[in-house]
C-alpha cells in the first residue's frame, strides 16, 4: 500500500495555497493515510465486469441550448472584489521582478 509522508502533504498544501502549521501537517498526514487505507479496501472488490467510470452520477449528455441569458449588473459582480478600478478587478503583480 502506498503511503503519504509529510513531504507530500506539504507539497499538496503548497499547490493548493494552503499554509499549514507543523501540527496541521502532522494531522493531515495521519488523516490522508486513513483515506488511503479506506481506499485499499476497495481493491478487494471484484470489478471484472465494471467499465471504468469517471462519474458516479448516472446519465450522460446533459446539455443546454446556445441561448444568451442576462449577466449580473457590474455592481453585483464587484461585491466581493478586494480592489476595483473602473469596472476591473485589480490584482497584484503577476510576474516576478528580475
Amino acid at each position: 500500500m502506498s503511503t503519504i509522508d509529510r513531504k507530500t502533504v506539504y507539497r499538496v498544501a503548497d499547490l493548493a495555497r494552503l499554509y499549514l502549521t507543523d501540527d496541521e501537517i502532522e494531522q493531515m498526514t495521519v488523516s490522508l493515510n486513513k483515506i488511503l487505507e479506506f481506499e485499499e479496501q476497495l481493491k478487494g472488490v471484484n470489478t471484472d465486469n465494471v467499465e471504468p467510470m469517471a462519474q458516479a452520477v448516472p446519465g450522460v449528455n446533459v446539455m443546454r441550448e446556445d441561448v444568451v441569458e442576462n449577466s449580473l449588473p457590474l455592481r453585483e459582480v464587484m461585491l466581493n472584489a478586494p480592489d476595483e478600478v473602473e469596472g476591473f478587478f485589480r490584482v497584484p503583480r503577476i510576474i516576478e521582478k528580475d
Binding site: F88, V91, R93, I94, I95
Partner: peptide, 17 residues
C-alpha cells in the same frame, strides 16, 4: 488581464476582465 505597465513583467498590478 490588462497590465498597468508596458509588459506583464514591468507591471506593478494588473486589471482583470
Amino acid at each position: 488581464s490588462v497590465h498597468s505597465g508596458a509588459t506583464i513583467s514591468d507591471s506593478e498590478f494588473s486589471l482583470e476582465d
